[in-house]
Design a protein around this nucleic acid. Structure first.
Lengths: 330, 330
DNA sequence: TTGAAAGCGCTAACAT
DNA sequence: ATGTTAGCGCTTTCAA
């Protein structure tokens, strides 16, 4: 691999001149620049990125850290962050936090391989976040509340979402509402559940423990939880799935059992994944403002990177998307 | 930011000793190591990634380059590559080629910020690929055929896929088959179309130009192309959408026009996206071996990285997924 | 306008 | 077992 040294030698100029010439510095004469560029072309020279980063001690890159790069769930979020990065002429890389301590995400965060990061990965520990973030390394956290130097929170009001979903069901005349929950350690799930409880309490309704089942936020889990509910005999009049993936699995179980949605049972989800409007019936759900929150997260990060002060906490409102999986209960 | 120098000073040892201690080299005494580690902790020391990469002149990271990070389409592929990377203890980062010459992808490729790459981004030019790849920088290209030093091709047999889809329709008694195509400059689309033509020719069937419409591989395009077809009056008995996204749009147009699938018109797609089996009717389509191809691409890259010789061309077979959108034509 | 040289933070060969 | 030192490839200050 040719280095700038080789280029300088071939062009017959000093190292520094070659550097100036190639970075387009105006103090290099046109003739010299041409000589250098020609030499670079001839040697197929490509600058070494790290050397530059090391020297400059900044990378012009931010990282988006996700639990699993392959989650289709994030697409809008990614798109919005990508847009913001592009318009700020920053590079964006995405990396996964799978692999625990040795994950790519952890390395990039700790070894400061980027200038800042947006994190949406519950398996990145709070300690790690505290260790990584700092005045010179801003991190926007999107899946929990955590304060500290360099840390900015952008979250969606899940409690309100859980409340809205439940309240909507109650409004439609449902009094027995099951809650299919996500993983116990999920902060998001906890909030959605709290919202559910608040709406229930407000309406003077009691939660039945036999109708609180865990589906772990995955399709298969929703399927199993629903099977379990089915076996119990008595059915609620509506089910609140804490996310759409579980609702997808649940509706499959329901269909298999001959329970018709929404005639026999109303269903509501959470997230508004792409699939939601293609299900039969079309799934009524809670929509998270993914594009907006990603966009906000990006903007805040860049503001911090530019030295501007920003608040360290933002909470976004959530919207109910009314489709056809909930029926008035009479 | 504390450097290793600060750590060494605080611990009262030499730079190199600190380095050895922290990398777990066995020749450092336990006592010294403890001293160094304590100092590091106290200073909240984190190693600088670039400095290390620069010194080592390798990054232990590979890049996955995609046109658009947010495409849900790739999830299985990403997962498989992630798995392979993890099991080889390499880091994986994903970056987008959006942004043309200044895209993150181009920078990472050219500036050698990773040890190798897997590319599935048609907007990365052939020239760039040639410039970037080399003996010390392997690139696996997944969306076209291109040979050169350091370049490995892993492609899916789209021609065969196009043939299978069409042949299947013919087998079911369809003789008038429309082809809704992708973008003209897409290599993949060209292959699928070739397969279509081969099957048609083989059956002694003629392609009707009025039934070859372009939908640009996107949902909206499929919708419009289908509308256009509808306006023309005469309908074929089956439609081959060159990808599922277009089929989704197309089926919407058909539904709006009161054309029932598959009773009035059979439909086949290509890709087997997640949505396919949730459509009404469930979409019969051609499944690309995404997991397998990603996995293969990853393995090949690592073999090259380890200095092993590998072939530079692999073509994977494709499978037809029979669902309910095609009916026997009588 | 060009060149010489320092130094970013780290690893590793070599000397002790 | 520990220390000294060269050098990875680049940018940039300073001197010519």
């Amino acid at each position: 691999m040719a280095t700038i040294k080789d280029v300088a030698k071939l062009a017959g100029v000093a190292l520094s001149t070659a550097s100036y010439a190639m970075s387009g510095d105006s103090k290099v004469s046109a003739k010299t620049r041409e000589k250098v560029l020609a030499a670079a072309r001839q040697l197929n020279y490509q600058k070494n990125g790290f050397a530059m980063d090391l020297k400059r001690s900044r990378t012009n890159t931010i990282a988006l850290i996700l639990t699993d790069l392959s989650g289709p769930y994030y697409s809008e979020l990614i798109r919005s962050i990508q847009d913001v990065a592009l318009s700020n002429s920053y590079d964006l890389i995405a990396c996964s936090s799978m692999g625990g301590k040795d994950s790519t995400a952890v390395r990039y965060l700790l070894e400061k391989r980027v200038d800042g990061a947006i994190v949406l990965a519950h398996n990145i520990t709070v300690d790690l976040l505290h260790a990584a973030a700092g005045a010179r390394f801003p991190i926007v956290v999107m899946d929990r509340l955590i304060s500290g130097e360099g840390l900015i929170n952008v979250v969606v009001d899940s409690e309100q979402g859980g409340y809205s979903a439940t309240h909507y069901l109650i409004e439609k005349g449902h009094h027995s509402i099951a809650y299919i929950s996500g993983p116990a350690n999920s902060y998001d799930n906890a909030l959605r559940y709290q919202g559910y409880l608040r709406a229930m309490r407000e309406a003077g309704l009691n939660e039945k423990t036999k109708w609180k089942l865990s589906g772990n936020f995955v399709r298969e889990g929703g399927y199993k939880a629903t099977k379990m509910m089915l076996v119990q005999g008595e059915l609620p009049s509506a089910v609140f799935y804490a996310n759409d993936e579980m609702a997808v699995g649940g509706m499959k179980a329901l269909e298999e059992a001959g329970v018709s949605v929404p005639d026999d049972l109303s269903v509501i989800g959470f997230d508004d994944i792409q699939l939601a409007e293609y299900l039969q019936p079309r799934l009524t759900t809670i929509r998270q403002p993914m594009y907006e929150s990603g966009s906000l997260a990006g903007h805040l990060l860049f503001q911090r990177l530019n030295g501007d002060e920003v608040n360290d906490f933002y909470k976004l409102k959530i919207e109910l998307i009314e489709r056809s999986s909930v029926k008035i209960n009479s």
